[in-house]
Design a protein around this nucleic acid. Structure first.
Length: 579
RNA sequence: AGCCCCAUAGUGUAGUGGUUAGCACCUCAGGCUCUGAAUCUGAAGACUCCAGUUCGAAUCUGGAUGGGGCUGCCA
């Protein structure tokens, strides 16, 4: 760290392309502010689940610290005991860790600073900067004024420092009722910023705190805790979302006063960035709670939820979330990111990571009529077509197979080039087969399809160089394993969902599908690509050898589905053409 | 209504007085392919407006317009 500081010969434009926060940091380092240190923090309140928006805050603060050789703290902002719990602390730690943000030994709690905060408050009281106010909640609200009218001074505003100190001591000792007195900062009741109108610093709350128990009955407010905690920890850049912008003058006021009194020695800088909104998702705690309470989802970690726990269970890799966040960037504009971008990042990552296997979601029986009745072959199939080092596995092949229902059409449209009567296609990594016959029941429902195979195409290529237009996936019927497959889709069917009203009732379809035998050896929490179908994830908790529970993370990009949509509608029923 | 913040393709972002205004996702067309995947090539697509400063403005200044935030003893 003790490098020579030749500030002058630093190239000026090395901050090109950086976001505005990193520019500030680069400049601060250049001018040796905070002795060139960078120290950030993520300050969740342990009263709820972390979601994609929090992920952005975590990732930003952490990666900024990383990039500039700084430190990153995890600090729980636990000043409202009525809603907080240790369970949330543990869940949040897991989420933060999973995302890849490391706090090392710097795990802190604002509640550890209660004594210090109390002393800070006393210092402010003694300096005449804070007073005990006996007004009720309603009276304080009335006297605060409105957006356009100034507030009026509390009648208790001019109590002497001694009296204030005495009251504050007795507040702590439990002499007064909850709500009967508060400690307020003495700032300016006419400020156009409502937060500066003598804001509350301490309130009496006889609620047991999940960490400090009944030790305290007075608790500091967010505004009087957050900045002070930052200062105590030596935070240099306190990054938060835009809604705290109007709090900044107050953040600064407390610290400046404490600095002037010599109580504090360090001043962090709060910088606000716009929060992340994603299409087809909601992050409002209240709205999400409705889904949980109404059992529209299985819980806060339901794979459809935008929570970090939900995305984890869904099978979104942390690295995909990180690249997503990186692509989104940091600004102060309101953003509404296309969920497609997140999905693209997930596919991108999984294409590299996931081994390929064969699975059939909706089976259609295929009989290879020229294949010997009792024969079983074990075909060697690569685990990843782009990565030989991942090796191969054996997949059984026999006379009776399953293929995907939608890979066969008796009377196909022009652009359909999968299996159809008379046509030859390839079974992935197996054989060329030609459809010879279609068996139906009396009602016309297709029961099975008869095909012949070409023994010379073993492995999937023909010696005569003959081409087929399509390759489809398959499974040997007698060897296929049943699996509970949960097909997840977007939780809402509206780009800008309001809540329950836009709930997508098709967002989960649980089906029994078939997978190749190798899946029996799968470990929970591993990613697979079901070839031609999508990316799937062995459920971290529920997947066992006996019961294969598999979540669909995301479908493959499906060009055929789009072509199909553009095709003239088959005239089964009269359909009203929308447009 | 008062104060504060924001404004570049559909979306997100780069651009810091001279650029054919760059990139990513999306969209469309095509190539390649044992995944209609991946990949490759190409196309379409933007500086909110009005004044001012300047030889020259997306960029600086002023105003307008549009969007967002703020009236918890929540964070």
């Amino acid at each position: 760290m003790k490098t020579s500081n030749n500030i002058s010969d630093k190239p000026e434009k090395d901050d090109f392309g950086l976001d505005f926060i990193r520019k500030i940091i680069v400049e601060d380092i250049r001018t040796n502010k905070n002795e060139g240190r960078v120290h950030t923090r993520f300050p969740p309140e342990p009263n709820g689940w972390m979601h994609i928006g929090h992920a952005m805050a975590i990732y930003l603060s952490y990666s900024v610290a990383q990039e500039y050789n700084g430190l990153f703290n995890l600090r729980f902002d636990d000043t409202d005991p009525s809603k907080e719990s240790m369970d949330y602390v543990e869940a949040i730690k897991e989420d933060v860790q999973w995302l890849g943000a490391e706090w090392e030994d710097r795990l802190y709690f604002a509640s550890d600073y209660f004594e210090k905060l109390y002393e800070f408050a006393v210092a402010l009281i003694k300096a005449g900067k804070a007073f005990i106010c006996d007004l009720s909640v309603e009276e304080i609200r009335e006297q605060r004024g409105t957006l356009t009218e100034p507030g009026v001074n509390s009648p208790y505003r001019n109590r002497s420092a001694e009296e204030n100190f005495d009251f504050f001591t007795r507040m702590r000792e439990g002499e007064f009722e909850d709500g009967s007195k508060v400690l307020r900062a003495k700032i300016d009741m006419t400020s156009p910023n409502l937060l500066m109108r003598d804001p509350i610093m301490y309130r009496i709350k006889r609620v047991s705190h999940y960490r400090t128990g009944t030790e305290w009955i007075i608790y500091p407010s967010y505004d009087f805790t957050h900045g002070e905690s930052d200062a105590i920890e030596g935070i240099t850049h306190s990054l938060c979302s835009l809604e705290f912008e109007t709090h900044r003058p107050l953040y600064d006021w407390f610290i400046d006063e404490l600095l002037a009194l010599g109580t504090l020695k360090h001043k962090p800088r709060q910088i606000e960035f716009s929060r992340l909104n994603v299409t087809y998702t909601i992050t409002s705690k209240r709205r999400l709670l409705e889904l949980v309470k109404g059992e529209y989802v299985s819980g806060w970690d339901d794979p459809r939820m935008p929570t970090i726990a939900g995305m984890r269970k869904r099978g979104f890799p942390a690295s995909a979330i990180r690249t997503f966040l990186g692509r989104v960037g940091v600004t102060k504009r309101e953003k509404n990111i296309d969920v497609g971008l997140l999905e693209a990042c997930v596919r991108d990552e999984l294409d590299k990571e996931a081994n390929r296997v064969l699975a059939v979601l909706n089976p259609l029986r295929v009989v290879i009529t020229n294949y010997p009745e009792d024969q079983v072959e074990h075909l060697e199939i690569p685990n990843h077509p782009k990565d030989e080092s991942r090796g191969t596995r054996k997949v059984p092949f026999s006379r009776v197979l399953y293929i995907e229902q939608e890979d066969f059409m008796e009377d196909p449209p022009k652009k359909f080039y999968r299996l159809t009567p008379g046509r030859e296609v390839r079974l992935r990594n197996a054989y060329f087969i030609t459809c010879t016959d279609v068996k139906k029941d009396e009602s016309g429902k297709i029961l099975e399809v008869h095909c012949t195979y070409d023994p010379n195409t073993r492995g999937g290529s023909s010696p005569d160089g003959r081409k087929v237009k399509a390759t489809i996936h398959w499974l040997s019927r007698d060897h296929a394993l049943k699996a509970e497959i949960r097909l997840y889709d977007r939780l809402f069917n509206r780009e800008d969902p309001l809540g329950l009203l836009d709930y997508n009732s098709d967002s989960l379809k649980s089906i029994i599908g078939y997978v190749e035998p190798s899946l029996k050896e799968a470990k929970p929490a591993t990613h697979y690509q079901f070839e031609r179908v999508g990316y799937f994830f062995a459920d971290p908790e529920e997947f066992t050898k006996k019961k294969l529970v598999i979540n669909r993370t995301i479908t493959l990009r499906d060009t055929w589905a789009r072509i199909k949509k553009q095709l003239p509608q088959p005239k089964k029923k009269k359909q009203k053409i929308k447009k």
